[in-house]
Design a protein around this nucleic acid. Structure first.
Lengths: 351, 351
DNA sequence: TGTTAGCACTCGTTGTTTTGGAGTGCTAAC
DNA sequence: GTTAGCACTCCAAAACAACGAGTGCTAACA
């Protein structure tokens, strides 16, 4: 925090800004010159601090809620803090791992408990998206369940299983079914879902050589089932933490935020956004106030992390809290989590 | 509302009580004697009303928030209202049906939109549980997906499909697999999941005649997969409606309620509770205040309805709001919904 | 005997005023 | 460049006043 490659900020100003923000993060109250005067080891009188603060305000790093109140950080101030001032903790990571791993059950369970743990750890609202497998077909099987129903099962590379029930008009004999199975497996194996389009299906029908209506129907149904977009699963926790922060409770702000957590579609676009913004080497992204892609969260800070499960499979974790959030703690949590999710989730694949 | 088989309530008191409650439901404000004096067609002076109100208070049907305030209904008052006073609307039901049916997609989608519609219709928080199929096995299939993986697919009577991936040590040849499939189907077909226990499996192993470790392993894994309790899916909507009612916002009440909606485990016990209480012929249950099985909701009213999908498959719908909820509207909604869910959901079976 | 007008009283709500104090900006002295 | 001092601002909390909706009670009335 000695360095300042930022415009015009001399060493002392940086120190003061740092002190202001830290103090505000801790108390949530506007901080005055006298406080800083004693807080720092700069040994400066409050009057001096006042002058510096006036400068910092002019530069846009802090603002006054009203005359005769202390200063609070602006978005720009927070940004500077996150980019330059914040210390990176390096704490031991064992506890977290243990907590999650203990009960490695289904993926869903794991994700839920990860979200929950993060929420209790940070006291903010959290979300985590299930990894999105853009995956290849590994195995397909059609089985005749009853006279008028065919069950199609598709296993993906990641061992995710999809099934789809197909209603048919007339019965399909076992022989044809077997033939179809072989055909499908040899034709579609290794293809990504996106690669299976109308053309592929048409060619398949051709190859099948059996020009009965039933076969055609089954193929179409299967194609449709495969093309169906699996919708992004999102798990949240601690949404009510939002109510703990008065600055988020004003107006119907809180309601909107809570709704967003219940409805989840805004969270989905958040996930898509962050996955698109191929974030820096750390994989962690901080949105302060208006920087956020989601309008509903413009009074919050949003910290997201993308995690990767080895084979290019990605997901997103998000923490939503007030702008005066404990960035250090949050980012620390996300960082360790990110490094562990790979191991944790791979153990519990298979939906 | 002419009849009063309730203790000591003469006709006039009933009318006054009715007026008080209706008024309070509409305004949310304590209602005074003067209001009632004009509201009803009884042509009584406020003084007379006051006397009657004093009586009603002594009998426990209404309470005063404080001296020199109007009266509001007590739990007992609400109960009386719901049991005897409330009119049953009979409105046309078409709109609701249309709205939901239009987009009959997957069950999950349908349930979500039902909850949403209810929430917007009533302005309360709503939940709906997915139907619980205590179901019989219709079809089982083991398939070899790769050298060390077997996929077990089980189709239930209701066309719900469960799949489970089984890791195996040594490869299983096709012939054995086929044999197993036949065996499993003939042995387990028609059995309810609960009927498949260790004994059944042991007997099956016996019958298989193949005493290889692999077969035994597969059987065990399958048994375990089958016995796994599918956890009750619950969809909610409009949880934030809770914040609209000041009487629920006091203290950390709202937080607890909202958390309940996020965490869902309390909702699950609510569902279990209501399913157990084999409710009356109408299938609708009203819990007022402390009557509710869920402590968190002791300041609310909870109205639940169980719906049935022909084949004994049941689910629960719940509406959670303030005690001064519009019971008529709520119950009306639930009633029509109940009568339609059967048709709606049967169209979109298959998870 | 039931009903009602009248009245004194209660008490929460709302609005106004007062006060205190935290914090500022500016000026003048060091 | 730093700081002590001072006048000034303005929010928050407390204190106060007025209002009015509503009550219970009593006494008169049909």
């Amino acid at each position: 925090m000695e360095k300042n490659n930022e415009q015009l900020l001399d060493d002392r100003k940086v120190k003061i800004l740092d002190a202001i923000i830290r103090n505000y993060l801790a108390t949530g109250e506007p901080v005055g010159s006298r406080t800083i005067s004693k807080y720092t080891d700069l040994n400066l009188s409050s009057a001096t601090i006042r002058n510096e603060m006036a400068d910092l305000e002019e530069l846009g790093y802090i603002v006054q809620p009203h005359t005769s109140a202390g200063r609070i950080p602006s978005d720009k101030g927070y940004r500077f803090y996150v980019d330059h001032l914040m210390k990176e903790k390096d704490r031991e990571v064992s506890e977290m791992k243990k907590f999650v791993i203990e009960k490695t059950q289904k993926m869903e369970q794991v994700l839920k408990s990860v979200a929950k743990m993060l929420a209790t750890n940070t006291n903010y609202a959290t979300m985590i998206s299930a990894p999105t497998y853009h995956n290849k077909v590994k195995f397909i099987q059609l089985s005749s369940v009853s006279a008028h129903q065919i069950l199609a099962v598709v296993v993906m590379n990641s061992n995710i299983v999809k099934n789809h029930m197909i209603d048919i008009e007339e019965e399909l004999d076992n022989e044809t079914l077997l033939k179809l199975n072989i055909l499908l497996n040899s034709a579609l194996n290794g293809l990504a879902l996106q690669e299976i389009n109308l053309a592929t299906i048409a060619r398949l029908k051709e190859q099948a050589g059996i020009h009965s209506q039933v076969v055609s129907d089954v193929m179409d149904a299967l194609a449709q089932a495969l093309s169906e977009q699996e919708d992004l699963q999102i798990y949240t926790s601690g949404a009510t933490n939002i109510l703990k922060y008065p600055e988020l409770t004003t107006s119907d702000n809180a309601t909107n935020l809570l709704s967003a957590f219940e409805e989840k579609d805004e969270l989905i676009s958040l996930v898509n956004e962050t996955l698109a913004e191929t974030s820096s080497e750390t994989g962690i992204q901080v949105y302060i106030g208006n920087e956020t892609p989601i309008q509903t969260m413009k009074d919050c800070s949003v910290v997201t992390a993308t995690y990767e499960l080895g084979d290019g499979v990605k997901g997103t974790i998000g923490i939503i809290g007030p702008k005066r959030m404990d960035y250090e703690n949050v980012m620390d949590n996300l960082k360790t989590l990110r490094s562990q999710l790979d191991g944790i989730l791979n153990k519990s694949k298979g939906s």
